[in-house]
Design a protein around this nucleic acid. Structure first.
Ligand SMILES: [Mg+2]
Ligand SMILES: [Mg+2]
Length: 648
DNA sequence: CCGCGACA
DNA sequence: CAGTGTCGCGGA
């Protein structure tokens, strides 16, 4: 996913910083080292920020939070400049290091909401909420004045409680920040923040949560289990089904065939057709022309899509090569930065964040150079807001809101979000609780009340983020299949996902299991046996979620395992489904681009729906059509045709 | 029962 | 408001 555009990010930010540097005219060594350090995981940004606060200025060591207000960006930009010139540091979102919040509004509750807090008491102790006028007066007096007359909320308990001793606290806090800076660390004020009542309450209650991740072996009935060998046996399959299930040799061999009816699997035909060259690229185009976006799982995205709506779901793009031709590449990258930055921020509106990504695509596709926001607003898909607030800011070349918001905080939150089981909300919460890095979380895991799944995600952070080479998927598949066959040789087990599509690497390994119900066959209860056997064999090591009913015909298990005892830990999903859903489920989970989630959102509005159980459709005219039963694999190709694919 | 996160 | 549907987890 396109979070780290490494060097480009560095260049852009460095450029911004230099522009800012000129304006502020501060030139001490700390700043420069702050900039050059930047490669190191986004910590340097905070150093740079603190660098702005160095010098013998009035606000030296003070850290101001100014929450952005809709429609007030230019005002706030000038505020930032002024505070920076006075030696203060500005941040957009509260952190544990802030000393002041600038706020001219009326209500404490409103401010709390703007800051993404439940209540202002979550602010670090001693934080002063003060009106902008106070800054102006300080500037005129050239010293830090009593805040008294300019407090944002004169009468609230909050200010009564904290304002009296604020000055002393500010002093001590300031020293800590500089110490941290000299040590070259990112700011970490965690310890200084006294846990509030609510903190300790949640912590103690969460401590009682389920522990640990690593599964214990469960008693097993004695069974002749084959010893695991490193050459884990691609043994000769006993039945025809296994022979032609998935094309393991990277796109060679026969397509999958339904053993019941010898009709080809449309997806496999398509895949092998593409690889043979029997289907050319423009076959794919026909799909786009039909208005169905050619959307790909975000970890595999490889092209630029002419279909506008598709951009809304594009998570990562390849920006190499040809795209650089666009006269608006700079703007496109800025919007991508915005997307990368905001998609992890709690409280950001989902749709506006998505618009940034869409705007990036539009910028890149616009053939004429955009020189001012007003021009851009004429383009379909770019509203006045986007045009005037952002494009003009980007084109000005001056450090703007994006610059100030691209903080070590945003980067830390983005890193947290990459933990399996941690999303936008939890990532922000972890930061609020003082964590600044993955190592912080590891150092004191108790403190953060992680769920058992999140603990696994944290422990295996690097492994689980890595892609899985095709051969390793195959190795895991052989292990899982051999155990499944030992349980019941009549089981159907298939590997799904990008592996089945012939990709060289996958994000996880998914298995689909069923059994033909003819002759009374059933895979009920297989899930539990399989997981236990794999665990005994050391293949499965962690569990992330269990099926509601282990013995149900439809059951999903999610966890972690590895192909060899020394290998990396990999995400493994196992799914059991009723036999009659085999075909639909294969489509759904093998999910090539058209079947993937974002496409579903598109087809949904057109009377089509795709699910792991079945698909249904409307004819082109929109007239309700018979439900298309895709429950049999032999109808897969019919289903694909109905949503616009042509077959060879 | 709800919000979160993950899955396609 | 807006282009999805489903499930497990944990806490209220
Ligand atoms: Mg995550
Ligand atoms: Mg997968």
């Amino acid at each position: 996913m396109g979070r780290l555009k490494g060097k480009k990010d560095l260049q852009t930010l460095t450029k911004h910083f230099e522009a800012f540097e000129k304006g502020v005219a501060k030139d001490n060594a700390a700043e420069r080292s702050g900039v050059t350090d930047r490669k190191g995981k986004g910590k340097a940004r905070s150093a740079g920020q603190v660098g702005l606060g160095l010098g013998s200025k009035v606000f030296d060591g003070l850290r101001f939070c100014i929450s952005p207000e809709i429609g007030a960006v230019s005002k706030h930009k000038s505020w930032w400049d002024i505070i920076a010139k006075m030696g203060g540091t500005v941040v957009i979102r509260p952190d544990t290091a802030i000393t002041h919040v600038i706020y001219d509004g009326r209500s404490a509750a409103l401010l709390a909401r703007e800051l993404g807090l439940d209540t202002l008491s979550e602010l670090p102790e001693g934080t002063v909420c003060v009106k902008w006028d106070w800054v102006v007066k300080c500037k005129m007096a050239n010293k830090v004045l009593e805040t008294g007359p300019w407090l944002s909320f004169q009468k609230t308990a909050f200010n009564r409680a904290f304002s009296s001793n604020a000055a002393i606290r500010e002093g001590s806090r300031m020293r800590d920040i500089t110490t941290d800076l000299l040590k070259g660390r990112s700011i970490s004020i965690t310890k200084r923040r006294e846990p509030s009542a609510s903190d300790s309450e949640t912590e103690s209650s969460k401590k009682q949560r389920a522990a640990p991740s690593v599964l214990e072996r469960q008693p097993q009935p004695p069974k002749p289990v084959p010893q695991r060998s490193s050459e884990a046996a691609p043994t000769a399959p006993a039945d025809a089904y296994r022979d032609n299930a998935t094309t393991h040799g990277a796109g060679r061999g026969p397509g999958w065939e339904n053993p019941l009816a010898n009709k080809g699997d449309g997806l496999d035909e398509l895949i092998s057709g593409l690889q043979d060259g029997t289907i050319r690229e423009d076959e794919d185009e026909s799909v786009k022309e039909n208005g169905i976006a050619n959307e790909v799982a975000d970890d595999e995205y490889e092209g630029t899509n002419p279909c506008l709506v598709a951009d809304k779901f594009k998570c990562g793009q390849n920006h190499d090569g040809a795209d650089d031709k666009s006269p608006n590449e700079y703007l496109a990258r800025k919007f991508e930065e915005m997307y990368d930055l905001y998609q992890g921020v709690a409280g950001k509106d989902f749709f506006s964040v998505r618009n940034y990504r869409m705007a990036a695509g539009i910028m890149r596709r616009t053939p004429w150079p955009i020189t001012k926001g007003a021009d851009a607003s004429k383009i379909k898909g770019i509203g006045a807001n986007l045009a005037e607030r952002w494009i003009d800011e980007f084109l000005s070349g001056r450090p703007g809101r994006l610059f100030y918001e691209d903080t070590s905080q945003a980067r830390a939150i983005a890193a947290f979000k990459d933990i399996y089981g941690v999303g936008k909300s939890q990532a922000n919460e972890l930061y609020k609780r003082g964590a600044r890095s993955i190592d912080d979380l590891r150092a004191d895991p108790e403190r953060y009340g992680l769920t058992s799944g999140q603990q696994v995600g944290l422990e295996l952070y690097d492994d689980l983020r890595a892609r899985i080479p095709r051969e390793e998927c195959k190795a895991i598949y052989d292990l899982v299949r051999s155990e499944a066959m030992a349980i019941d040789p009549k089981l159907w087990i298939e590997i799904m996902g990008s592996y089945r599509r012939g990709q060289e690497a996958s994000g996880d390994v998914d298995f689909l299991i069923t059994e033909d119900t003819e002759d009374g066959g059933s895979h009920a209860g297989v899930m539990g046996k399989l997981v236990n056997r794999l665990r005994d064999r050391g293949v499965i090591t962690h569990e992330l979620s269990q099926p509601h009913d282990w013995r149900a015909l439809e059951a999903k298990w999610m966890g972690v395992g590895r192909a060899t005892p020394e290998g990396k830990y990999r995400r493994i999903d196992i799914l059991c489904i009723p036999f009659d859903q085999w075909g639909a489920a294969l489509i759904y989970f093998t999910g090539n681009d058209v079947a993937s989630a974002p496409s579903q959102t598109i087809t949904a509005g057109r009377g089509l729906s795709m699910g792991k159980g079945s698909g249904s459709g409307c004819s082109g005219s929109g007239r309700p059509k018979d439900r298309l039963d895709v429950r049999s694999a032999s109808l897969e190709s019919g289903f694909w045709a109905s949503i616009g694919y042509r077959f060879v």
